[in-house]
Design a protein around this nucleic acid. Structure first.
Length: 565
RNA sequence: CGGGGCGUAGCGCAGUCCGGUUAGCGCGCCGCGUUCGGGACGCGGAGGUCGGCAGUUCAAAUCUGCCCGCCCCGACCA
């Protein structure tokens, strides 16, 4: 490809509304253009990268036994109402009406469609297992698109769905997909991390995410440096450690004038925050919920809602708390009545806690569970943090940030039951298929690759997903052979099967080199009167500082070797 | 949806507070010439509903109201 003909233009200045590195570089390189919030056009260079990623994914899906299909984006809303997931997705579901006023959704994912489809065709255990996938556009009306391609409203996704006769089959399909995903990230040159995850709106039981570690990542990951344990903070279960406060003592009221927050109370009474219990209030589907947790810990709302299973969960406002007759600043589970009480299991981690007195300016010492208060539910609802102990090996947990580039779910049978994806077993009995679902965001993967591979000059593409292999860069001089030799070399390289971006513009060397760096093509070949004096060209890897001179007749073979790695 | 910021040429910005000539600057773009190993230079040129609508005024990019869009921080997810 000759740059003079390439659609797209590099920018010298950083676009004002991009502050994520990958976003800035994609725009500066002339690869993407924003149309609206979370909606982008992909120019030729970006599209080549996306296609390369897709090809790698396709290859791995096919190797794992997947069959590619293509499902409708336009889906009757009715189908979503059948599974109740129209509510789970809520406003993220793009809906529209056809000319007969019938409601439709733009597919945010395709479980409903494919489950119904499989129910029609796979009627026997002999038809299973099935692994069906597609690479196609998805629509999600995200509350807040951000970070360029990191989080968008229209995006390309590979989604695969597995259908098995039983749990053991699902486990096997799931295992195959984990391996295939690992292969995909490896082949894209991206180090990925497998973490435990919450299943969110998709639903289901086990769930894992693949993360690419990056500063700009939206997700916090809690992991153990000593073993394999790693989980999204939404899901992570840190061991909280116990608080040794001696044998349970009788409760004792203490005056705490003006002390409202845990910090103030603990400081005033000269006890660590971990020796206190705090009360936090939520509204779950309109009902006040009283949450108790050790003073040094934070509530993980996702874990909390996994206990409550509320449609809408939010913190109560101060007004709501007061209206409920709760003494803000000194609220306590001790003696409280008329609320659903959920306690974090940290209430069992020690003795003789300080808790609120349910009277203004009053706290109580020596509160012990379950002697002094009861809870409707006691479960882990705390936010795990670095420094907690690993639930697997007891090591000390650490935390980092990551970009979620893949998410897999063991769905089970709740969708196949609702949508009638049933099969008949050897005995002639009918059962719902056991499902799994597996997604990779293609554009996000590209953005993650840039986040992971760049420097202050631009992108540094891993070879397998680079838009072109070679940046052919002649430095013209009147009366020299450069133009002629370059044209010949261009043909030779292309004939050798290399993908060449040929900078045939009459620009100064600085402009060409800077564009080469910005675009991040892995190998730059410079031809100038100087190199031709030695019948050579200059070869520079984008990932390295130094260049080397390579004889003209060897360069094609050399590049071929480098690209094929 | 809550909080913060922004909207003037393809991109980056000034001008707006304090209304007043043909609305500027840099980059990029077009033409000619000189340059050429890390974003060269000269000369000439094209390009703008000042986000939109309404209002105030002799006069609005500038003041007022309403609306729209975009970015960032929080609750959601590939």
């Amino acid at each position: 490809m000759r740059i003079s003909k390439l659609f797209g233009k590099t920018l010298r200045e950083v676009p004002a509304d991009a502050d994520t590195v990958s976003h800035q570089l994609l725009v500066r390189a002339g690869m993407v253009n924003q149309l609206g919030a979370g909606v982008y056009s992909y120019l030729p260079l970006a599209w080549r990268v996306l296609k390369k990623i897709e090809d790698i994914i396709r290859d791995e899906m096919d190797k794992a036994g997947g069959q590619e299909v293509n499902l409708p984006v336009l889906q009757p809303l009715e189908l979503w109402q059948l599974t109740g997931r129209d509510k789970a997705f809520g406003k993220s579901l793009f809906t529209l009406y056809d000319r007969r006023e019938r409601p439709l959704a733009l597919g945010p994912t395709h479980e409903e469609v494919i489950t119904q489809l499989v129910g029609r065709y796979a009627r026997s255990y002999r038809d299973l297992p099935l692994l069906l996938y597609q690479i196609q556009v998805k629509f999600r009306d995200e509350p807040r698109p951000r970070g360029g391609l990191i989080r968008v409203r229209e995006f390309h996704m590979k989604d695969l769905y597995s259908f098995d006769v039983d749990e053991a089959g699902l486990d096997e399909s799931y295992r195959k997909m984990l391996q295939a995903y690992q292969n995909i990230y490896d082949r894209c040159g991206l180090p990925s991390m497998l973490v435990e995850a919450d299943s969110g709106a998709i639903g289901g039981k086990d769930s894992n995410e693949f993360m690419v570690i990056a500063e700009s990542g939206e997700d916090e990951i809690i992991y153990c440096p000593d073993c394999k344990y790693a989980a999204n903070v939404d899901k992570a279960a840190g061991v909280k450690g116990s608080i040794d406060n001696g044998k349970p003592l009788p409760v004792e009221e203490v005056a705490t004038p003006g002390m409202g927050t845990i910090e103030e109370v603990a400081g005033f009474l000269k006890v660590p925050q971990s020796h206190t219990l705090k009360a936090v209030f939520y509204i779950a589907d309109g009902e006040m919920v009283f949450v108790v947790i050790r003073g040094d810990l934070g509530v993980n709302e996702i874990k909390l809602n996994n206990q409550l299973k509320a449609g809408e969960l939010r913190m109560a406002t101060e007004a709501e708390v007061i209206e409920a007759g709760i003494v803000a600043g000194a609220a306590s589970p001790v003696g409280i009545k008329g609320f659903k009480v959920i306690a974090d299991d940290s209430v069992k981690s020690g003795t003789n806690f300080v808790a609120g007195g349910n009277k203004p300016d009053t706290h109580i010492r020596n509160v012990n569970y379950p002697r002094d208060f009861k809870a409707d539910i006691v479960a882990d609802i705390a936010m795990a943090r670095a420094g907690d102990k690993c639930p697997e090996c007891g090591g000390t947990l650490a935390s980092t940030h990551g970009i979620e580039v893949g998410h897999v779910f063991k769905l089970g049978t709740f969708l196949s039951e609702k949508l009638g994806a049933l099969f008949v077993d050897e005995k002639g009995e009918s059962h719902p298929t056991v499902m799994g679902s597996y997604g990779i965001g293609i554009g996000r993967l590209m953005a993650a690759a840039i986040e992971q591979n760049h420097d202050d000059k631009g992108i540094i593409w891993p070879v397998p997903i680079a838009p072109y292999h070679v940046y052919l860069c002649p430095l013209y001089r009147e009366g020299s052979e450069v133009a002629k030799v370059t044209e010949k070399l261009y043909e030779e390289l292309e004939a050798a099967g290399l993908e060449v971006l040929y900078d045939d513009r009459e620009e100064s060397p600085g402009v060409k080199f800077n564009d080469a760096d910005l675009l991040g093509i892995p190998f730059r070949v410079t031809i100038s009167p100087r190199t031709l004096q030695k019948d050579s060209v200059e070869l520079k890897k984008r990932s390295e500082r130094e260049a080397e001179l390579v004889p003209l007749e060897e360069i094609a073979a050399k590049l071929k070797g480098l690209v094929e790695g």
